[in-house]
Structure formats: structure tokens, C-alpha cells
Design a protein around this nucleic acid. Sequence first.
DNA 1: GATAATCTTGATTGACCAGTCAATTAGAAT
DNA 2: ATTCTAATTGACTGGTCAATCAAGATTATC
Lengths: 190, 190
Amino acid sequence: MQPARREALIKAAIEEVGTVGLVDVTVSRIARRAGVSSALAHHYLGSKDDILQAAMRRILTDYGEAVREAYRTAKDPRARIDAVIRSSFCEGQFDRAVIGAWLTFYVQAHHSAEASRLLSIYARRLDSNLVHALRSLVPLSSARRIAQGLASMIDGFYIRAALQEGAPDRTYAIAMVTEYLDLCLEKELA
Amino acid sequence: MQPARREALIKAAIEEVGTVGLVDVTVSRIARRAGVSSALAHHYLGSKDDILQAAMRRILTDYGEAVREAYRTAKDPRARIDAVIRSSFCEGQFDRAVIGAWLTFYVQAHHSAEASRLLSIYARRLDSNLVHALRSLVPLSSARRIAQGLASMIDGFYIRAALQEGAPDRTYAIAMVTEYLDLCLEKELA
DNA sequence: GATAATCTTGATTGACCAGTCAATTAGAAT
DNA sequence: ATTCTAATTGACTGGTCAATCAAGATTATC
């Protein structure tokens, strides 16, 4: 029972944070969404802070797995860059509740040491993936610059997808970021 | 006294939201930062929600003024696009507490109807400014696409500036977005 | 079928906070 | 000096919520 409950509670926490936000989230709400009492949520996951941390960790590991999965079929550097871009906008991640939760934690990292630590791991990995793949196509300094641009644009489309009503969908976002990548590479190789 | 107190309280609210976050912000904290009692904060600005709304409105109007100010000296379309880019990263806006508060409200717009309304006004204006200036350089459909890319990249650099430790500074962010603009225009005009 | 282990919750406690109000002070006007 | 007005706050209230705990329900084991 323990693993099933933990699973359900973490999933409920992500959905709850994504839909009502960090301010209005309560342990009772999370528990209710998971179909259990608030006492049980504490029993299996500890304090409210522990629950939210588990939710954030889950989001980050899910993303990490998506990238690793996409990497599997990527043989050359360019394919690896495309894989990173695609992973960032993949089905599981590009869900309204997940995006909402992600952003909430993103902002929370300003004030919470632990959230900040977790997020910086993600940021470093994303950057490292991109730079590593890019440096075999362009000089290192250019690779760093292009990686910065790509990562920023990915975050930008991501954040906008969350709240703009007629926001670009997955496909469009991927196309835009890829187009930017192509433009950068063309310029470098010219 | 009334206008001075309101001013101080709104400023304090922005700083408090930017530093401790929406979750831990209390009326007492805002009032203390402004050097008054919490009762006075309620007296001058109403409910907690009213206070936070006033803070958000202030951030958006400050940004609007920055754009209008930058527009004053921009005579041709390209200069107007540059003005928008520069305004987004201008001194007053690109401050750690302000960025923190901005992001907090950005995310809050998911859950709050009023925050969403205010933010969409900003988003529409930003988009409209960019599209309007771009359409005299490229076809309308391209203008729309480029505006999307620019706005996303601006938001991306903005959000990253807030929490990445070695984040790019104003100048660098402006240079990156401008470079993207140049690449897009070159491609269109080729 | 008894016993132990696990699961589950209702009830409770203690803390915190938004918002109100009566009362106090300070200042201006007459 | 006195009245009137605006500014200001300490104290209070009602409500909410995180966290705990003891007790009850369920399942597994022998």
C-alpha cells in the first residue's frame, strides 16, 4: 500500500499545486484529491514541506527521464540537441497542471534553499547537455552562447504556454526553438 | 500623508513579495517594512488582496512607462523594436526583488482572475508593439511569428535572470535578444 | 479463529493571520 | 483654549491549517 499511496499523493500534490497554486494548497486538499485523509498524507510523506519537495523532485526526475529516453535514439550531436528540445515540450511535461506546478516551484526556488538546489541541478544538466552537443558543431564560446539562448527560449515558451490563452502548442514551440537553433548554426558556419 | 503611505506600502509589498514570496508574505511584514502597523496598511489599501493587486498594478504601470519613455526617441520601426527589448531589461525592471515579484504574479495569474486580466493586458500590449513595428519590415504572418519568438525569449531571459546565480546581465540579455531579431530579419529579407 | 501488523481516520491542539474597532495622539482651524 | 479632523495603533476575534495521537478498521499470518 505504501508505494501506491505515496504515488497517488505526489501526483495529487502536483495537480493541486498546478491548479490552485502554492498559496492555496493545503495538505487536506492534496489528500482529498488522492482520496485519503490528511493524516495519512502526513503519515506517508511527512510534513507539508516534505510533500511539496517530493512533488518537485518528481517533476524533475520525470523530465530527466524524458531527456534520457529521447537521447537513446539520438546518434549524432544535432540529434541530441533536437532531443533536448523535444523533451522539454514532450507530452508528459507540456500539461497545464504540470507546467503550473513547474513554474510555481521555479519561482519558489527564489526563497527556498532546497528548491533552489534541486532546480540548479536541472539547469546545469540542461545547459551541460546542450553545450556538450553544440561544441562538436561550433567553438566552445559559441556553444555556450547558443545554449544560453536555447535554454532561455525554451523556458520562455514554457512559461507562456502556461498562461497565455491562445498560446503556441507543443509542435509550434518546438518548431520555433529549432528554427532559432538553425539560424544560430547557419550564422556560425557561414 | 495618505499618498506617501500608499506609496511606501506598495513599494514594501513588491519588495516583500520579491524576497519572501507570496506564500510567506503577511500584511504585518509588508507594514513593518514600510514602518507602520498592519492596521494602517488595511486602512489605506484595504484587504490583503487589494494590497497585492496594487503592487502588481504598480509593476505593470512602471513597465508601461518604461516602454513609453523608450518609444519617445524611437523614430523608425527597428528603433521601436529595440526600444521594447531594452525596456524589458531596463534598470528599474531588472532588479532582483522586482523580478521575483513579477514572476510571482506571473504564476499567480494561473489562479487569480484579476491577476490574469492585468497580465493579459501587458502581454497584448507587448505583442501588439512588436507586431506593429515588425509588420513594416516583414509580412504580417512573419511579424507575428517573430514577435512570439522575441517575447518568449525576453520572458526566458527574464525568468532566468531571477534565479540562476551566474545569470546573464542586462547587457548580455539585450544583446542575445537583439541578435535573434537580426537573424530573423536577415532570413526574412534574404 | 486468534493475534499481530498495517492501514486509516476523527478529533484535538497550538500557532498564525486577516481584518476590525475602540481608543489615543497629533495637527489644523477657529 | 477648544473643537474638529486625520493618522495611528494595540488588542481582539474568528477562522484556518499543520501536525499529532489514540483508537478503530482491515488485512495478513499462524
